[in-house]
Design a protein around this nucleic acid. Sequence first.
DNA 1: GGATCAAATGTTAGCGCTAACATCTGGTTT
DNA 2: AAACCAGATGTTAGCGCTAACATTTGATCC
Lengths: 344, 344
Amino acid sequence: MSNSESPERRKRRGADNPTLADVARESGVSTITVSRVLNSPDSVRQATRERVEAAIERVGYVRNMLAGSLASANSRFIAVIVPSLSNVVFIEVIHGLQTTFEKHGYQILLGNTEYDMRREHELVQTFLGWSSSALVITGLRHDEACTAMLRRWQKPVMEIMELGQGIDLNVGLSHYDAGRCMARHLLDRGYRRIVYAGSQMDGNYRARLRYEGHRDLLQEHGLEAPIEEWPDASALEIGAKALRHVMVQRPGTEAIHFADDTLATGAILDANRAGIRVPDDVAIAGFTGLPFGQHITPRLTTIVSPREAIGRIAAEQVIARIEGKAVKPSVYDIGFELCVGESA
Amino acid sequence: MSNSESPERRKRRGADNPTLADVARESGVSTITVSRVLNSPDSVRQATRERVEAAIERVGYVRNMLAGSLASANSRFIAVIVPSLSNVVFIEVIHGLQTTFEKHGYQILLGNTEYDMRREHELVQTFLGWSSSALVITGLRHDEACTAMLRRWQKPVMEIMELGQGIDLNVGLSHYDAGRCMARHLLDRGYRRIVYAGSQMDGNYRARLRYEGHRDLLQEHGLEAPIEEWPDASALEIGAKALRHVMVQRPGTEAIHFADDTLATGAILDANRAGIRVPDDVAIAGFTGLPFGQHITPRLTTIVSPREAIGRIAAEQVIARIEGKAVKPSVYDIGFELCVGESA
DNA sequence: GGATCAAATGTTAGCGCTAACATCTGGTTT
DNA sequence: AAACCAGATGTTAGCGCTAACATTTGATCC
């Protein structure tokens, strides 16, 4: 209720909020000094800084991030592109990213492709338009034009979840090996008639990679590797449906290797309701290691992928890269762990 | 690989990407015409538009959103502030918001307060600094300075989850009534010795409101309403721990009314493992209506809150407001539904 | 053929900030 | 006391775009 302004100065719209210039006038310094108080306080003498800070408080200054980012061609935005928000896995990765980036003063721009590459390309383009400081994207496979655009881009690109040399940085795990690992476990347990079951396998090629690992191992042992696919998004009831389908259509099946824990858990819970004994009537295995799997009876045999850690480590590497520290390996294998419950 | 530029024109840094001016030169129009092709294509003659679009393609123009937003004092950002990303409820709300806003060309800026009001205030300030088009925030209670700042702000503010007249718009449900509703159900079932159990009840005052509804109803019937609180974030094992604690410390307890489904589900799964019969030994009720509750045995008795719908409707109202359409009720009661399983 | 007018396009002046370079302090050195 | 210099502060010129106003175009009418 103190500062009056000459009423008809502005020729343009705009919220008419106090600007750096107002703070500068109020504290008797130049705008760049105010800017320095905000961006590199150590480069301003303490007395000056305090005067400016008081003025900021007094006029109720809220800095305009758009103007700052435009002038410096850098927004402290991190573009994050995931294929789905319905899948807990990506939520946990985002959580890891968010926590770490936020600590360093970066803001996430979240994009959801819904497993659509065209959408992915659009999102990349938009996010580059925001002068993002870096981009984190799921997987190693993208639209060709999109990959080209990112290669030309001068800032860090981090591809996560899947393991391999991509555009720039990479943190992930080998889904092929994970599928193979679980298949080996099932063989070790003595199962021979094993069905792989997944949903939305077209878009989700990481699940397909796991299947390929599974299939190759079985074939090396002279076994068949049938697969059942559902077009729906992964959900408990799809797991239940898959279980019933396999019991009826493929009698004699000894184990079902599900593409993810949600499906596997849905199958176990349904088996419990229906009086189907797991693993005696049919063994069940999953992938991901969601907390739920360890609380149901029987506990789910699955492969644990460190989801938050992927986010955290990806963020740390990106930050190191932004701040000019060299990041040694551009491919980081985060690994996975077989977690044996009673279900298989 | 076609366009060469005079090499020492620019005095400043910058990615040296093609700009509107480059496209304008390339297509023989003025920059504002290119701008119009991008922002209001209908106001440009078709022939001109096609020429410009071709030029955009040719030079590989990517628009600079920062510059556009600065010039128009509007970013098409929607600030979204939630207290937690570990809680599925907020994830689903975010999903509803995201899907709807994205369809209308808005980008979400996501902030996580971790149930800390100071953090909330900081986030609000930052997000206003991005010239957001609107702000969606969880709950009706905020830091005083924060509320004042939002009241002064000229753009739509949407407070969600909780029901009541707040700063501007509101979409939510009455948590007090929900707590009361479940308490009534438990009384109707004949339970009298009922314990309420929740986690992180200090920050999460919506859970506390539910407790108050529960408590008031019990007291109206001359019953006590003991409460058990855990400081940890809600998780399956906390529910299990709470169940064990109550069984030992409060023998004779007939029902436990949990603050959320995660706790309640954890308790049921643990009871199954421990041979505690639900609801015969102890009845269990939850709140939220997560899918899981309907797949376990016994099915969880809970109150379903339409989480994605909250996000969707909140987004729709905000968009209507931004686009100048009057939004009639500024308080929208989304309601809730009692969902009776076998657990209580 | 000129008046009329809406549609299409252009000109100008910023939006609010920061990079780059310039200048000013005031203490230290010789 | 002049020279020197690092640290603090200031001046200038944009960053790339769009609002507001200005002008041109061309179809229609009398």
